[in-house]
Design a binder for these strands. Structure first.
Lengths: 196, 196
DNA sequence: CACATCTTGGAACGATCAGTACAAGACTCT
DNA sequence: AGAGTCTTGTACTGATCGTTCCAAGATGTG
């Protein structure tokens, strides 16, 4: 039926990522993946490998796409820890508002919850979470937070990030999500009041 | 093999609940349920019905067990909205600290994310979430919060509750979870400073 | 054109899924 | 004791899971 690939590999991986994004690991069946990409089973297996490999490549694809956005949001000079948290969560809110992308990213939520994913994949998820946490912590330090405050805020921001995914998938409105994010950004206000 | 039931129905339901709790709906296979309860398939189906019915009864069992605790934590007089949030989240932390109960309650987390659960079950989950939200809101009003503040704090406390489940399942330490909960309880501090 | 290489659709594999059928055993009641 | 009811273990169903196999067709190279 074919001699050379009849699809764009990168675009296919993007769609694969969105299927895992939407369904998590376990419920992203091969049938759903073929349906979501338009590819046949053979093309999927021949190009990417088995399901867990596919998931790991989706994770890499996610990092490649979104980590620069988080990096950019965190790298600029921030007047306060509060601004760091707000900038970070705004990236998440923008991602949720993107109509070309499914609601509620379950890539790192559902994958850590079940052993259906192999150890290598779980380790990747954990490394990604730890990386974001460290990235946040560093940006918070740069914005004037002390050690303890930076650690605490990084953790809480990560927690808010996860809850945004869950609430979004549970059907909460974008206004509700923005409210949660805004509240999280007010967290450092107690010890680091914004200059009037 | 048997004439009268050879197990305690209520204890069996408790164990069923814990299996859904631990695995969510989809990954709680009948085999896992039989293994978790010690019952045979026939006993499970004969006593409770099919899987979705079993899940709904688990939800009811959860509400019956834990809603009174939340109710009790919220019903007493609270000096401030902050105290309400802290009391509510403390119930969650105590539940997580309970060694007889699995880490990270996925009863209402994973169930809303996938269509594997039937409409009736999803509606129950949604009703339970809405109920907790209303309960929180009312307690916050009673503690002196105005309408808008109560709505916002109820939402954020619910969000924190969900993130505690996800983080707990993801392997975060109980110290980290307590930190997240404590931070959430500091949220109302901005507009409702604690009396010195 | 001929040959090797690659891709693709579709069939098929064993495993597991939720759910059911049924017979054997244990109990209550008369 | 005997009849009827309930419970339970086991085997089974059709569907779906992830994965592999293979032949057919399309391309690139000689």
């Amino acid at each position: 039926m074919a001699g050379r690939k009849q699809f764009d590999v990168d675009e296919a991986l993007r769609r694969v990522m969105h299927v895992f994004w939407r369904w998590g690991y376990s419920e992203a069946s091969i049938d759903r993946l073929t349906e979501g990409t338009g590819l046949g089973r053979s093309s999927l297996y021949g190009t990417f490998g088995d399901k867990s490999t596919l998931f790991r490549k989706s994770l890499q694809r996610y990092a490649q796409t979104y980590h620069p956005l988080y990096d950019q949001a965190l790298s600029g000079p921030h007047p306060s820890p509060s601004a760091v948290v707000a900038a970070y969560l705004q990236v998440t809110l923008n991602r949720i508002a993107d109509p070309t992308v499914p609601d509620g990213c379950l890539l790192t939520v559902s994958a850590t919850q079940f052993p259906a994913l192999d150890a290598e994949g779980q380790a990747m998820v954990r490394a990604m979470i730890d990386g974001l946490r460290a990235m946040l912590q560093q940006a918070l330090l740069a914005a004037g937070a002390d050690e303890q405050e930076a650690a605490e805020l990084a953790l809480c921001t990560l927690a808010t990030n996860k809850s945004l995914a869950v609430l979004s998938r549970a059907g909460f409105s974008s206004e509700d999500l923005a409210t949660v994010a805004a509240a999280a950004a007010r967290l450092p206000g107690r010890t680091h009041p914004l200059p009037e």
